[in-house]
């Protein structure tokens, strides 16, 4: 495993407090960022509610965007941490192993067949795609849980989901719908409404609750599945718990924000030494860290100069892919 020296172990809760404060600060900060230059007095005016435009900007544009960053970022960070604990592999991440791409395919399929645009069928289809991909991966990883076979399975699932998505787009009768889907798949929180938040939030919260229940089991898995079982953990129940939780989180997130990769890879990787590599204690900090990362990254894309706002998924991929390469390099000894 990673050979870096572990930093001094923080007092239980200090890390959580720090990350919570970070999320809070970034959340407030993100409310002030956007094309319209607004300051703190404007926020109070918006809350007081005597200026219609200010109100609309804060409540209809900025707040949903920040809320989605928290929900999607938190759920992606948590999904990564839980999947890595389940598969005992630091490279297991929804984007890397094809779960996000499969959710994207599910969403595209639902969009393709639904005339009404975004409806409840989109997150449901995305969650189904995510669940099937995770289940398939677990079946493949059970035979041989090595890093290499997991990554290869991920490559295959990614390729399959990508091919099916391309097929759906290829057969799309409407070129405008096509451009929309491609843009949306890149991942962004721009121009999202309360409707998106309300649609995704219940599923994401449910998924996160399931994943947060997995801590005890993931801790047992440090010594492998059989020892975990001998310690009173039910491995089948644990697999189902994490698979369902991750599918709910990733599916609902992808349905409203598109594919935002590498959050679940980068965040647990950074935080793991700070919790003594304990897969259970990693869960909450990863959720907070994911929320902070996406709030920060989403603020960054709004701060960058230039006419065209960068897609968030593009930014996270630019940050995440090098980390992924670094992780492959440092875990190469595990590859057989």
């Amino acid at each position: 495993m990673m050979m870096r020296a572990a930093p001094a172990r923080l007092h239980h809760g200090a890390l959580g407090l720090f990350l919570s404060l970070l999320v809070l600060v970034l959340f407030v900060l993100s409310l002030f960022l956007g094309p319209a230059d607004l300051g703190l007095p404007d926020l109070f005016k918006a809350i007081d509610g005597d200026d219609g435009i200010l109100q609309a900007i804060f409540w209809q544009i900025r707040l949903p965007r920040a809320l989605l960053a928290v929900l999607v970022g938190g759920s992606l960070g948590l999904s990564g941490a839980a999947l890595q604990g389940l598969l005992r592999n630091p490279l297991a991440e929804p984007g890397v192993i094809g779960v996000s791409a499969s959710a994207g395919f599910g969403a595209v399929l639902a969009l393709y067949f639904s005339a009404a645009g975004l409806s409840l069928s989109v997150p449901l289809a995305a969650m189904t795609g995510a669940f099937l991909a995770t289940a398939l991966l677990l079946v493949l990883a059970r035979r041989d849980a090595s890093v290499l076979s997991l990554i290869l399975a991920g490559v295959a699932i990614n390729a399959l989901a990508g091919a099916l998505t391309a097929l759906a787009l290829n057969l799309s009768p409407n070129p405008f719908a096509l451009a929309d889907m491609v843009h949306w798949l890149m991942g962004s929180f721009a121009d999202r409404s309360h409707r998106d938040v309300m649609m995704a939030a219940p599923f994401i919260i449910m998924g996160m609750a399931l994943l947060l229940l997995s801590g005890r089991g993931l801790r047992g898995l440090v010594l492998g599945e059989e020892t975990a079982q001998s310690l009173g953990i039910n491995p089948a129940r644990l697999r189902l718990l994490v698979t369902l939780g991750a599918a709910l989180c990733v599916g609902a997130g992808v349905a409203v924000a598109g594919a935002i990769g590498f959050v679940g890879l980068v965040v647990p990787h950074i935080l793991r030494p700070w919790v003594g590599y304990d897969p259970a204690r990693l869960l909450w900090p990863s959720a907070l860290g994911g929320a902070a990362l996406l709030l920060g990254a989403d603020s960054l894309v709004r701060l960058l100069p230039g006419g065209q706002e960068l897609k968030l998924g593009v930014v996270t991929a630019l940050i995440g892919a090098p980390v992924f390469l670094h992780l492959i390099w440092s875990t190469r000894r595990l590859m057989r």
Partner: peptide
């Protein structure tokens, strides 16, 4: 009721020895 010590058990994360031993309390 019974503790099981498997053949060549793998330790998957570099947790401290104390944390590893604490896993025995999971039941």
């Amino acid at each position: 009721l019974r503790a099981w010590l498997g053949q060549d058990a793998v330790i998957h994360w570099p947790v401290t020895v104390e944390r590893l031993v604490a896993l025995g309390r999971l039941p």
